[in-house]
Design a protein around this nucleic acid. Structure first.
Length: 893
RNA sequence: GGGAGUUUAGCUCAGCUGGUUCAGAGCAUCUGCCUUACAAGCAGAGGGUCACUGGUUCGAACCCAGUAACUCCCA
């Protein structure tokens, strides 16, 4: 069978992916084997594949494929997240395009549209993952709003409520006036914005006492005592002011203690209060306290028993309590009130000012701190065990540096606002009675029973109850993911959950360490009494070359499917892994995908070479040394690769594999054994080489699954039985390593390199065979490597000598001297220069080694093996120096 | 303002307990090669004040302190 010159990935990818699917290689059911489980962080159902997913899922697939090839029962559970805010926003936008407003729809009608949308677009991202080669058990695909999973959410809500961990309360929340919903702290993006700082005068309420103190104050204070000036970026909220606060230690305002002032324009009287919270050197040192519209002010207000005056509607317009500018949008009102203040003569000045402003991640609207009735989940008790799991190492974070961040967050955990003013999601199972009381129940029937009891009114009917409109936060469903995908709530003792849970590895982004990973750990402890996973591999953020996060809006993200088209899935996988140390951001460079493509192309061509060989059964095997060497080298590399995988250093594992294949196998081994053009090869070398190749394919498979599967089935490897596929082949075990042989060959390689160098420098054709003489001091038996040396350095002869050879080109490898007699004469000046340079270096080196060895403190403190190493260095250097000095002497004579 | 992290070759990164001829890898660059597996390649080569300053130590890229720049999280 002839083999095409260039591998065509597309065809092979489609062929083998369907083949794997048809043969159920991705499928997992509990059995006697050890399980290896990963649950996929469910991508947003609205999402399309981006580079972050590519990285994340490539890593997961490598881990899963390796586990499968190590004989474990590998199970990778895929799925999608309903992503309430993002999806609802998309559906609203889609409806808007059709001319439908959400306001005009009932909840049920809206949800019909949303489900329709989900059915249509919801699976796209999972199909895209298939192109990457993701070997998920697709039969297990779950969606966070599947009936079972939603039921689990409701059940856990009720469970936690009964435990007293869920409560309802008025809180300051991040309000998105555009989405008209509360959003979590994590969904608020803070950006520095140029703002204006308005200095506004509040007139002091005058009484007799103040007239007296005023005359005193004017002597001591440069400030006018007829008014206080405050600085604010939000003049439109002055109507909601409850007090002016000054620092009790602020000497400038002593005369204001106990006074009252008028809010400009509306002339409402508010007190001047004292609190050390106020920063004296910011603005004027006077702070307007607006409890309804600022978190810190709210807390200050609570402390001083100030009234809460909320002047904003849900959509960000001013309400009747504002008295003025009613119905205006907050930003329009800001401009207008500035003019009004100016006209009233109370606007002292306006300064430019930079400050952090929160924006909604989803709608990009400026977040409004707002008091509202929300549902909360107490975190403190749940955080404690979740922190311990990580601190005591039961759950490992990779890399470990995230432990600090994790601890910091868990020790300062705040209660979780779990309600969202949305329709897409699990509706909170709370039912309100006509009198405002509420009950928590799974069904309206149960709710009615409870309501009757609670109210003592047996006449109540279902129609008297209204269910809470809000849904729970998306994370309130995804924190159950590792349990709910195995039906651990519906059927807590089923075979799947008992077998697969706790899962092994979780691969996710550090940015959701807190709101997802930490909460899964809490849920695992709360609902199973066990950790949800053992290792958390945190990937970095994929950035472009300028260090910017790759995003659709910036347009700096390549389309992953285009990349796959261009470089093949295998190439892209290698590209993603080449520079992705755990936890560090990845500067994505398309060049890496190209490198990946070049790599599998190299594998392809190595295969073509071997494929083309004809065996002559009569030939002796001249390659035993090369075979022994590569076998040793392979086993050595295998150990390294195992080790790096154990430490989750995936890039390093890939690089070790890459070098084993490209350098050791292709550049050295195949060159060593390769017969001359059109010449046959001996049976043993041929068989051993095919065996090596097959081991290499297995080693490569987790990284580049498609081409390895393609080659695996070539008849070069003989007849394959039906299920004999690379994807389920067992990884080779490490065998014997011969360190002496490995070290010798390193020297032999150096000799070859040196001779190639001489050719390069002297413009000698590789076709011209050269004689080589060796004067050895190291004890390496170069004659046993004669075949390799002859072939790779193109030697005409290799002889051992005991005396120096003058007039020949020479070089030193270790302490062995090599001579290449050349027809042209050596330039003695250049030769002397070269030797002198080497001598200088060695002398300096020897000096530093000697400095250590004659240093009493070094000899007293250093470990014995370190001293031994230094002594060996000295001996080697001295030996080399001696040879060089001889050479110099020879030139001089 | 508080906390965390990063800074090593042109680029992306290793450097694990302070001690190998320790300053490394891959890519990129340069030089020479279309040598019938592979120019998506082969054979070679060059390239770094380990951010800066000080300290600890026989010995520091590594430990400590300070400084600077960048990134992230919290306020």
């Amino acid at each position: 069978m002839s083999i095409v010159k260039t591998y065509l990935p597309k065809e092979a990818e489609e062929k083998w992916y369907s083949y794997w699917l048809e043969n159920n290689f991705f499928k997992s059911v509990p059995d006697d084997r050890e399980p290896y489980t990963i649950v996929m962080p469910p991508p947003n159902v609205t999402g399309v594949l981006h580079m972050g997913h590519m990285l994340n899922n490539t890593i997961q697939d490598v881990l899963i494929r390796r586990a499968r090839m190590k004989g474990k029962n590998a199970c990778w559970v895929p799925g999608t997240d309903h992503a309430s805010i993002a999806t609802e926003a998309k559906v609203v936008a889609m409806l808007k395009e059709k001319g439908i407003s959400k306001k005009d729809l009932s909840r049920a009608e809206f949800l019909d549209y949303a489900w329709e949308w989900k059915e249509k677009y919801g699976g796209i991202i999972l199909d895209q993952l298939k192109k990457l080669g993701a070997s998920c058990d697709w039969d297990r695909t779950r969606f966070t709003m599947d009936d079972d999973l939603s039921e689990a959410v409701i059940d856990t809500f009720i469970h936690l409520y009964k435990k007293g961990l869920i409560y309802r309360g008025i809180r300051m929340v991040n309000w998105d006036p555009q989405g008209k919903t509360a959003v979590s702290d994590e969904e608020v993006i803070r950006k520095e914005v140029n703002q204006k700082l308005y200095y506004i005068r509040y007139a002091v309420v005058r009484d007799e006492l103040s007239v007296m103190s005023e005359s005193v104050a004017t002597h001591h204070s440069p400030l006018n005592s007829r008014y206080l000036t405050i600085a604010t970026t939000r003049p439109e909220t002055i109507m909601a002011d409850a007090a002016i606060c000054i620092n009790p230690n602020d000497g400038r305002y002593l005369h204001m203690h106990g006074k009252k002032v008028f809010i400009p324009l509306i002339n409402r009287e508010i007190p001047v209060i004292l609190d050390e919270y106020v920063t004296m050197d910011f603005g004027t040192g006077c702070l307007k306290v607006t409890p309804a519209h600022d978190l810190n002010d709210y807390e200050l207000g609570q402390k001083h028993n100030l009234p809460v005056i909320d002047i904003l509607n849900d959509d960000g317009t001013l309400n009747a309590k504002a008295q003025i500018l009613v119905g205006e949008d907050r930003f329009a009102a800001r401009k207008k009130i500035a003019v009004m203040l100016e006209e009233a003569g109370v606007l002292e000045k306006v300064e430019e000012y930079k400050s952090q402003v929160g924006f909604s991640e989803r709608t990009n609207a400026v977040i409004e701190p707002k008091l509202s009735m929300q549902w909360f989940c107490k975190m403190e008790d749940m955080a404690k065990p979740a922190l311990d799991y990580v601190l005591n190492g039961e759950i490992k974070l990779i890399p470990e540096k995230f432990i600090n961040t994790y601890r910091h967050w868990m020790e300062n955990v705040k209660d979780w606002c779990i309600s969202r003013q949305l329709w897409w999601g699990q509706q909170i199972p709370a039912w309100y009675l006509p009198n405002g009381q509420y009950v928590i129940a799974k069904t309206v029937e149960e709710a009615l029973e409870q309501a009757k009891q609670l109210s003592g009114n047996s006449q109540l009917t279902i129609h008297d109850l209204t269910q809470e409109e809000d849904v729970v936060d998306t994370w309130f469903s995804s924190w159950l993911w590792p349990i709910s995908v195995f039906d651990g709530f519906k059927d807590p003792n089923n075979a799947d959950i008992n077998y697969y849970y706790p899962t092994n590895d979780l691969v996710t982004a550090p940015e959701i360490l807190f709101f997802w990973v930490a909460r899964m750990i809490m849920a695992g402890h709360e609902f199973r009494g066990k950790i949800p996973f053992e290792n958390v591999y945190l990937t970095g953020i994929v950035r472009d070359k300028q260090g910017r996060k790759m995003s659709k809006s910036l347009g700096n993200s390549p389309d992953p499917l285009d990349l796959i088209e261009k470089y093949g899935a295998d190439g892209v996988r290698v590209g993603m892994l080449l520079s992705s140390p755990a936890g560090n951001d990845l500067m994505f460079d398309e060049g890496h995908c190209e490198q990946g493509r070049n790599f599998y192309n190299k594998v392809w061509n190595a295969f073509r070479l071997v494929k083309g060989w004809e065996v002559d059964e009569k030939l002796e095997n001249p390659n035993q040394v090369a075979i022994n060497w590569f076998e040793s080298r392979f086993n050595q590399a295998l150990t390294e690769i195992e080790d790096t995988f154990a430490q989750y250093r995936l890039s390093e594992a890939l690089m070790a594999t890459y070098k084993l294949v490209w350098d050791d196998f292709c550049a050295w081994y195949l060159e060593m054994i390769k017969p001359a053009y059109l010449q046959p090869i001996d049976r043993e070398t041929y068989n051993r080489t095919i065996e090596f190749f097959s081991k290499i394919l297995k080693l490569l498979h987790p990284f580049i699954p498609f081409i390895t599967e393609e080659l695996w089935h070539d008849d070069l490897f003989g007849e394959r039985k039906a299920f004999d596929c690379c994807i389920v082949a067992q990884l080779p075990n490490s065998g014997e390593i011969n360190p002496r042989l490995l070290a010798d060959v390193e020297n032999v390689k150096q000799v070859i390199t040196q001779i190639r160098n001489i050719r390069n420098n002297k413009q000698i054709s590789p076709k011209e065979a050269l004689p080589l003489s060796v004067r050895t001091a190291s004890g390496i038996d170069y004659l046993s490597y004669k075949a390799i040396l002859t072939k790779l350095a193109n030697l005409s002869e290799l002889v051992l000598v005991t005396d120096k050879l003058s007039g020949a080109s020479n070089f030193l490898v270790s302490t062995d001297e090599f001579y290449v007699p050349l027809s042209e004469t050596i330039d003695p000046v250049a030769e002397q220069e070269r030797l002198q340079k080497e001598k200088d270096y060695l002398t300096g080196f020897l000096k530093s080694v000697n400095a250590k060895l004659t240093n009493e403190k070094f000899m007293a403190n250093a470990k014995p093996e370190v001293i031994e190493a230094e002594q060996k260095k000295r001996a080697d250097a001295e030996a080399k120096l001696k040879i060089i000095e001889e050479g110099l002497a020879g030139l001089a004579s």
